[in-house]
Design a protein around this nucleic acid. Sequence first.
DNA 1: CAGTGGTCTAGACCACATC
DNA 2: ATGTGGTCTAGACCACTGG
Lengths: 242, 242
Amino acid sequence: MKPAPTFRPLYAQVRAMLTRALETGEWGPGEPIPSEPALASRYGVSQGTVRKAIQALASDNLVVRRQGKGTFVATHTEEKASNFRFLRIVRDDGKPEYPRSRLIDLRRVRASADVARMLALRSGDALYVLRRVLDYGGIPAVLDEITLPAALFRGLTLDRCASYTGSMYGFFETQFGVRMLRADERLRAVAADARSAPLLRVAIGTPLLAVDRVTYTFGDRSVELRRGLCVTRHEHYWNALT
Amino acid sequence: MKPAPTFRPLYAQVRAMLTRALETGEWGPGEPIPSEPALASRYGVSQGTVRKAIQALASDNLVVRRQGKGTFVATHTEEKASNFRFLRIVRDDGKPEYPRSRLIDLRRVRASADVARMLALRSGDALYVLRRVLDYGGIPAVLDEITLPAALFRGLTLDRCASYTGSMYGFFETQFGVRMLRADERLRAVAADARSAPLLRVAIGTPLLAVDRVTYTFGDRSVELRRGLCVTRHEHYWNALT
DNA sequence: CAGTGGTCTAGACCACATC
DNA sequence: ATGTGGTCTAGACCACTGG
């Protein structure tokens, strides 16, 4: 019998409290959190312990540390190149081009049993399904179908999407307060069908890279399903195994 | 003008010295490295500084830390489940099955300009090209074509491959002293051709997931090119965006 | 029990950014 | 000059492993 695996380091507890403060929005995206000495006094621990907690948050990309300036809450609205964290489709020639997004349509539908399970909803709950195409160098490369719980994205319209300049996740963060923290992806090869082929300007049957993403926010709650269909002729999906 | 960006933390220097010791094989794969106090005295720094250096190596997967036991040089020969670090193809049903490998053939060829560049060789240098198929549940799923510099893998034969039980990288590590540390992958969707279709038992034209890997050892030297063609019917490529 | 890595503290000093 | 995070040290104690 194992005795009792109840040991929990101090820094882990501080980390949990900081995460909670981040989740409740005590400091908003882009804003600085208090300095290490301030947090040490607030939680009654040493600066070194606070430091370790913050570094764990930084390695989870919840905050960004900047020497001489402070520690800032992560945001999708100013990540520039670092936005390639969630955009793994890059050009074969390596040019770091940011694609242009063209919105196709937005529908309101009911959740199937499968989708409901993956989003921790009930069958029949309302969903938004947004479709868009990403163009690289003016050529369509990715058809995204983005599924969102309507409850979290009340008032979402095509116009609101279109009028926002910046990344999708920046839009979700600023307009709906939904913060995407991490994602899982499953990749397969599929054939272009009658629905996707015209939008990507390829022949039916063309091999496409299908990227199925589940995106999570605080507390490992899934808040987005996304299927990307990618024409991997001039672009590819990039991944580093470390 | 910037003055001189020459600052280098002590722990980074210790880390570099430890990396060098690992590379030269002062401690072999699977063996323990000296304890923190021992290393601190060896390098004339505090234990805290050594700890930070070692933790950096651990996060690069060069060593593995085990509380109460010691710090051990990473090896591909006993990684059990952690071997899924370099094997991202998993079953759709999530069962953690380890596939069976069937060797197809081994050829000795000359490097083209492209391959030579990617492996930092000269055009015409000798290469080995090994092909194999991975079966999941008895069904062929992946056709791998593995390209290696002959200079590093002298005496490689099909028989030697076949007689080794364990992972490919474990084989390379123990038999040739070549240690794979990290890899980059590029994924595309392609159509099965006359060469691959029969081996994977699919029709010509079937969409396949093509995984092009470049694998690196110490000093960011590339030592393997690998192309995997995957039938993503019952399996998929898994990736976490963190 | 001794030895390992893991946690926590306190304090000094360094590098960087800003005013 | 001040305040931030980053480095480095020294020492104490804790959790885990194995003899």
